[in-house]
Design a protein around this nucleic acid. Structure first.
Lengths: 190, 190
DNA sequence: CCGATCATGTAACGGGTTACATGATTTC
DNA sequence: GAAATCATGTAACCCGTTACATGATCGG
């Protein structure tokens, strides 16, 4: 379970309440803010509390709905640091992981079953999407470096940007291949 | 469900039996052959058969365990082509997907909680793993192009190789940052 | 007053993993 | 005769998603 350690890691830095965590953690994974997956968060939080890794305290707010401030317990902190130092989650057994979960690539795998127009269409759409995403990442970078965030976190974002650029460059090559080659119109495989 | 379409896609090209599919499909995702996730395959296959998308026929083999040859039905083929042409599975809503599921990156996010030695250690390990993986991908490429496979499939592999190189380059930059900078030893975050 | 946002939750489902069971055949 | 590989399967579990429910407060 990876979210568990995201939560604990987040809490090692500052106590926070659930809704804010949703915005902080999930905002970055799904494009827009909440209502994204409150489901998982609150149920996990229940479990973590039962396990004694976090504590929740109701904070009365006048003129606003009550919040529950979540703090990490010493055991929680302990477990997070142990995980952090272990080599858990660092190994990737998956050889073709770039392929895994990237539906578009899987469809390229079956391009020989599509017409040239269909291929071009798909590639162009993908390119547009990926370029938009790159722009997003880049503006996030500007934002982050202006706010003087932890340099490691900026570096992480820079990895994301590089990876995205690599993807785009490859998509352009793919586009070339689709648009130019009759030789690529092979039908058999294997 | 993505595996469903991997199976159907595989079957549009050639009838195959379950165990072979395990080797073909899963070999590429988990490093070594079966016994990897036979669980999912056979249960899914049951469902696909019940839905009339595939058919199974027992093939008696003397001097070997019986196999069940799986063929795709016209409905199965139909459904696969529809999926292929739709834009299903092509959109990525996840902004920081490069971060998602890449445990190592998440730990870099918490590098400020580790000593310089621990950081270097982690980075070096990761580098070694990623370089090994690159070598694997490259030998797979040699293999594939010698066997004259579908050019699109070779292109896909080339994307994997490029992505892996990007990762490695970044890891080297990260290593630099860790080994050289005292300035990076910031403690606060936010 | 209505809709948006803040804030917390439950229930059902679904895909995927792990672990286990079975049994044959080939190789050492 | 033991271990490895071929071949098919079941059951339990876990993580995550979807969909829904509740209720308060704020802006128009």
């Amino acid at each position: 379970m990876s979210l568990k350690y995201m939560i604990l890691g987040c809490l090692t830095e500052v106590p926070i309440h659930g809704y804010d965590m949703l915005r902080v953690i999930f905002r970055d994974f799904a494009e827009q803010g909440p209502e994204v997956n409150s489901g998982q968060l609150y149920t996990l939080l229940n479990r973590l509390e039962a396990e004694g890794l976090v504590e929740r305290e109701v904070v009365q707010q006048d003129k606003a709905p009550n919040r529950k401030l979540i703090t990490i317990t010493p055991q929680g902190r302990e477990e997070f640091y142990q995980w952090l130092r272990s080599d858990a989650a660092e190994r990737e057994y998956i050889r073709y992981d770039f392929f895994h979960r990237y539906g578009f690539l899987y469809k390229v795998n079956h391009f020989n079953k599509m017409s040239r127009e269909e291929r071009l269409d798909k590639v162009d759409q993908q390119l547009a999407q990926m370029e938009e995403k790159l722009a997003n990442l880049e503006s996030a970078w500007t934002d982050m470096s202006q706010r003087g965030k932890d340099p490691y976190r900026i570096l992480i974002l820079e990895y994301g940007i590089e990876a995205q650029k690599t993807k785009i460059q490859w998509l352009k090559r793919l586009r070339e291949a689709v648009s130019s080659a009759a030789a690529l119109d092979s039908d058999e495989s294997q």
